[in-house]
């Protein structure tokens, strides 16, 4: 508890909010690393997921990659890539991209897959091209689930981006990795708190975006306004690691995504570092 209060005191110290290693700089670095990794992963995984969902081809890829990629230990992978490519931002981004691909792929695939086959058949029968069916029917109707995949990916990456400091690049992880050997636990705790708060804020933002992603005509279909409330879209989200209380078993209702031992809530990474 003293360490916690110490961390709060450290966070309150204006000195820690200035300079090249101040909190705003580290925060921006952290968000930047997350954004770049999720963006690259999204370009790869969402296009692949949409292709698989639309054509029904290669769907085994979704099951196998989501399972296999999730089983990879992120830190071990980081060391491997660092030995191979040298110290730098490259290995960090690669590792985070690998981490973000499974939820994005699964979300894009499941989003397209969730659209009523009769609706797609009708769209084709009236003369929409395959591209028009994808962009004007499948993506808009599957958007809440696609965004769900993005939400999940962002959450996992923002928590895991902490390890960028291991090389040492930047981001909020620097407070953890730099001060742990010095046994100065206030900044270590403060770093963990900052990562957690950032993760929670992003979670809230994406939960809101996911809700807004439900097309209006579909919201009506679901009936009463109460049905629009908390959790409705989240329940169909591919990897709902994010939902606080029930996060432990969130994968169990979608067995095809192979929730392995690595699918535990990402927030636990940040909590566990200070105690190592």
């Amino acid at each position: 508890m003293n360490s916690f209060l110490g961390a709060l005191a450290w966070l309150a110290d204006p000195a820690n909010w200035a300079g090249d290693d101040g909190i705003p700089v580290r925060l921006l670095e952290h968000i930047g690393i997350t954004a770049v990794a999720v963006f690259i992963a999204a370009v790869i995984a969402i296009s692949l997921g949409l292709f698989i969902g639309h054509t029904g081809r290669l769907s085994f890829l979704v099951v196998s990659t989501t399972g296999a990629l999730r089983a990879l230990p992120t830190l071990g992978l980081l060391v491997l890539f660092a030995l191979w490519l040298g110290i730098g931002i490259g290995p960090v981004i690669i590792v985070l991209v690998i981490l973000a691909i499974p939820p994005l792929l699964a979300g894009a695939y499941a989003g397209v897959e969730s659209v009523d086959r009769a609706t797609i058949d009708a769209a084709r029968a009236i003369g929409m091209t395959e591209w028009q069916i994808l962009t004007r029917v499948e993506v808009p109707l599957g958007l809440p689930i696609i965004v769900g995949g993005l939400r999940s990916a962002v959450l996992q990456v923002v928590a895991t981006a902490t390890i960028a400091a291991y090389l040492p690049i930047g981001g909020l992880g620097r407070y953890i990795f730099d001060f742990l050997p010095l046994r100065r636990f206030e900044p270590v705790f403060a770093g963990a708190i900052l990562v957690t708060v950032l993760a929670l804020v992003l979670e809230g933002v994406f939960a809101a975006i996911q809700r807004l992603a439900v097309p209006k005509g579909v919201r009506i279909l679901r009936g009463s306004p109460a049905a629009l409330g908390a959790g409705r879209p989240a329940r169909v989200e591919p990897a709902a690691d994010s939902d606080g209380a029930d996060s432990g078993g969130a994968d169990s209702d979608r067995p095809e995504y192979g929730g392995g031992p690595t699918s535990s809530p990402p927030a636990s990474h940040t909590h566990s570092h200070p105690t190592q």
């Binding site: 009523d116 009769a118 609706t119 058949d121 009708a122 769209a123 084709r124 029968a125 009236i126 003369g127 929409m128 091209t129 004007r136 029917v137 808009p140 109707l141 097309p215 209006k216 005509g217 579909v218 279909l221």
Partner: peptide, 22 residues
């Protein structure tokens, strides 16, 4: 096929309307 379908009207059971369009 696309050009052919666009000059033929198609009506099915359960309307097949796009739920997100007016």
């Amino acid at each position: 096929p696309v050009k052919l379908r666009r000059r033929i009207g198609y009506v099915m059971q359960n309307s097949g309307l796009l739920p997100h369009r007016t």
